[in-house]
């Protein structure tokens, strides 16, 4: 237990302390950067042109995921119901 831990964090599991989470974010962003930087070293030899662009898997993964989440939310506004919807059947 180091002294600079904020008071309400002291009783928490180490994994969910604010500081750990900040460190995890830093580590995550570093990992993101490293994987993209590997594009300089490794030739991913794309077949269709677009997939040979720099950092294609990265931006394609990010954009399609955002699109899927937004698409799902949009569909959800139409199709989502209370989860007791079928209970009175």
């Amino acid at each position: 237990m180091s002294a600079d831990v904020p008071k309400d964090d002291a009783h928490k599991h180490w994994l969910v302390r604010t500081k750990t989470i900040r460190r995890l974010w830093i580590l995550f962003i570093a990992a993101l950067a490293v994987t993209v930087l590997f594009d300089f070293i490794v030739d991913r030899h794309g077949r269709f042109g677009l997939d040979a662009t720099f950092g294609f898997p990265a931006w394609y993964g990010l954009l399609t995921c955002v699109a899927m989440i937004i698409g799902a939310k949009a569909l959800g506004t139409v199709l989502q119901r209370e989860d007791t919807y079928y209970d009175h059947e």
């Binding site: 950092g55 898997p57 990265a58 931006w59 990010l62």
Partner: peptide, 12 residues
């Protein structure tokens, strides 16, 4: 490289 980029940015 492909897989790491794709998965980590999906995570992002």
């Amino acid at each position: 490289v492909f897989q790491f980029q794709l998965l980590l940015f999906s995570g992002l």
